[in-house]
Amino acid sequence: MKTDSKLARGALEPSSGARGLLWPGIIMVGIITQLPFLYTIYLSLHDWNLMRPDLGVTFAGLSNFGQILSEPAFWEVLKNTFFLTVFCLLLCLAAGMGLALLLNRDFFGKGIIRTLFVSPFFIMPAVSGIVWKTVILNPNFGFSAYITGKLGLPAIDWLGKYPLETIIIVVAWQWIPFFMLVLLAGLQSVSPDLMEASMLDGANRFQQFFNVTIPHLLRYIEVALLLGLIFIMQTFGEIYVTTSGGPGYSSTNLPFYLYRLGFQSWDVGGASALGVLIVIIMTIFMTILFKIMRKTFGGELS
């Protein structure tokens, strides 16, 4: 870290140069993401139902926000989003670590095995949703029904009885490979000297893992968690094709709630207000997370 700041102060470029490099990216992203967002804020203060042009677009003040916050569904959805994100990330981390450890050995066909594990990450979310729903989970002709049938047990209605849990598993199936890859990269970069030194110190495998490997992996874990967080929080395709957010609101997360408001109720004002709330909630959440990370990893973000 020190060397970096020294490097900067060593005047590779003056800071005006830095601006020249930064602005194109900032302008591009700003225009395309922030202008529509400003418009979203504007719309959030209005009542506008696309299906009822006869009612027109009218100023509504903050009533859209009040309405959403007073809706019990909103709080259920918030809770779902939290559970979905947190449990999915934990599952990804644990399983990803397990797989990374399995693959961090020398054995025949390692490349192919890694290829098999990695594949789900590259599949479109909607496709994996459909495949799971049809092939595995369907209680009549899915594979799980076949197995329970062989065992003489009644078929389990996964998406009806455990909708959120099932979606967590489907999403995790897609994201575990990413965690595995990042952690595998981390494992492979642990310096052998360090391992040897700890061995000489008489540490056993577990001590070695917790005292040497894990601290080394912290940065990699952070990379995976942060990226995973942003994407898993936004889970949409899997829900869209499997449960449509139901039964009730039991598998609706914030983005899907937004979809229900915007494209089932055609309530543009309400959906926009929810969009603004999501950004506020996530900003607060991320700020706290960044603070914690800064404390954990010292100084600045990596």
């Binding site: 729903k133 989970l137 369907n138 209680p139 009549n140 029904a145 009644p154 078929a155 209605d157 996964w158 998406l159 009806g160 499997t242 449960t243 139901g246 039964p247």
Partner: peptide, 8 residues
């Protein structure tokens, strides 16, 4: 008398 997994 219906099918399991009716809500899907």
């Amino acid at each position: 008398a219906g099918q399991p997994g009716a809500t899907a």
